[in-house]
């Protein structure tokens, strides 16, 4: 009952509304389609992920923008691999970012070569992309006010 009361206060009392942070974070899900342009050439376009069936690949792009008056640093973006989707090996990108992966729901992260899983018999083998549960980008640079950047990855719908 106490929790419910707190929720109601947070939701409906403006005095408790949180102020905006210093980063705006935006996530887009897109698919690639092949079209023929005016020159008659085939061209790959990205469109909002709408017609997605099992086996299709979705491109997730996370845009970050420093919207405050001060620069921000030590930016860490964490993205769980969406349920029913499988991370595409080698697809995670991000300028000036150290990219690591988790195979334990985000409890720990490491480079692909260091990720090991144990099978039912207790034998250890290198983790494969479909076993990744989370992706983490650690940006090495300071983001100045108004500056925008992006990181991305691809995943396939099971």
């Amino acid at each position: 009952m106490l929790s419910v009361s707190i929720f109601i206060l947070i939701q409906f009392c403006p005095a408790f509304a949180q102020e905006a942070g210093h980063i705006e974070l935006k996530c887009l899900a897109e698919s690639e389609i092949e079209v023929v342009n005016e020159k008659g050439e085939k061209e790959i376009l990205r469109v909002k992920a709408a017609k997605v069936v099992p086996g299709d690949e979705v491109i997730y792009t996370i845009y970050y923008t420093a919207i405050g008056q001060e620069p921000v640093n030590d930016i860490v973006i964490n993205n769980p691999v969406p349920e029913h989707m499988v991370y595409k090996e080698g697809s995670a990108l991000g300028d000036c970012a150290e990219i690591k992966f988790s195979i334990d729901e985000g409890k720990s992260f490491d480079s692909p070569e260091n990720l090991k899983v144990k099978d039912a018999e207790g034998n250890e083998h290198p983790a494969v992309a479909k076993e990744y549960t989370n992706i983490r980008w650690m940006l090495k640079h300071v983001v100045k006010p108004g500056q925008t950047g992006q990181v991305c990855f691809r995943a396939r719908l099971e």
């Binding site: 942070g21 974070l25 935006k26 996530c27 640093n73 973006i77 993205n79 349920e83 029913h84 989707m85």
Partner: peptide, 23 residues
């Protein structure tokens, strides 16, 4: 199928409240 990223960051080397993504 939903996807949401979260960003942790610092300002003046002070950790700030994480922010979640939206479309």
């Amino acid at each position: 199928i939903g996807n949401m990223a979260t960003v942790d960051y610092k300002m003046n080397d002070i950790s700030q409240t994480p922010i979640e993504s939206s479309p």
